[in-house]
C-alpha cells in the first residue's frame, strides 16, 4: 500500500439485470488493489446510487451491464450524477460492443471495461478515472 488516500468506489447493478458474477469479481479485485468497495449489489436505481455516492463520499461509481441496456442506463446514471453535482466518474463494465464505447464516452461515461480486462486494467482504469475527474 502506498501513502495515497484509499479510493472509495461504489459498485452496483442498475436496473433489473441480475448478472452479478463480474461485479463480484471486480469487487474483490479492487479490494485486493487496496480500494474500499461499497458494494450495493442488485436492483439499484440512479437515485439509490447517487444517494450512496453522496453518503459514502465515493470517488467513483462502477456499473456492471450485461443486458444490452447500457446505451440507456449508463447515460441516465451520468445525468443523475451531474444533476446532483457530484462530479463522481461513472465507469461501465460488462458486455458492451466496441462500437458503443465511444458513444458512451461522448455521453460522459468515464471509462468502459470490456470482457477480458485484466485485474491490473481494472484497478488502473479506476485510478485514472478518479485522477481525471480531479
Amino acid at each position: 500500500m502506498s501513502d495515497e488516500p484509499q479510493l472509495r468506489i461504489i459498485l452496483a447493478k442498475l436496473g433489473l439485470d441480475g448478472h452479478d458474477r463480474g461485479l463480484k469479481v471486480v469487487a474483490r479485485i479492487l479490494r485486493d488493489a487496496g480500494m474500499e468497495v461499497i458494494y450495493l449489489g442488485l436492483r439499484q436505481t440512479t437515485d439509490s446510487i447517487v444517494a450512496a455516492a453522496e453518503q459514502e463520499d465515493a470517488d467513483a461509481i462502477g456499473l456492471s451491464m450485461h443486458n444490452a441496456g447500457h446505451m440507456t442506463l449508463a447515460p441516465a446514471m451520468v445525468t443523475a450524477v451531474n444533476d446532483a453535482e457530484l462530479g463522481t466518474p461513472v465507469i461501465v463494465g460488462g458486455i458492451v460492443p466496441e462500437e458503443d464505447v465511444q458513444p458512451l464516452l461522448d455521453k460522459g461515461v468515464a471509462a468502459v471495461l470490456g470482457p477480458g480486462a485484466s485485474a491490473e486494467d481494472v484497478a488502473q482504469t479506476v485510478r485514472d478515472a478518479v485522477a481525471a475527474a480531479g
Partner: peptide, 15 residues
Amino acid sequence: RDSDSGWSLGEVGRA
C-alpha cells in the same frame, strides 16, 4: 414487470 414500468427502461425486448 411490464414494459411500461419504470424498472424496464432500456431493457424492453433487449435480451
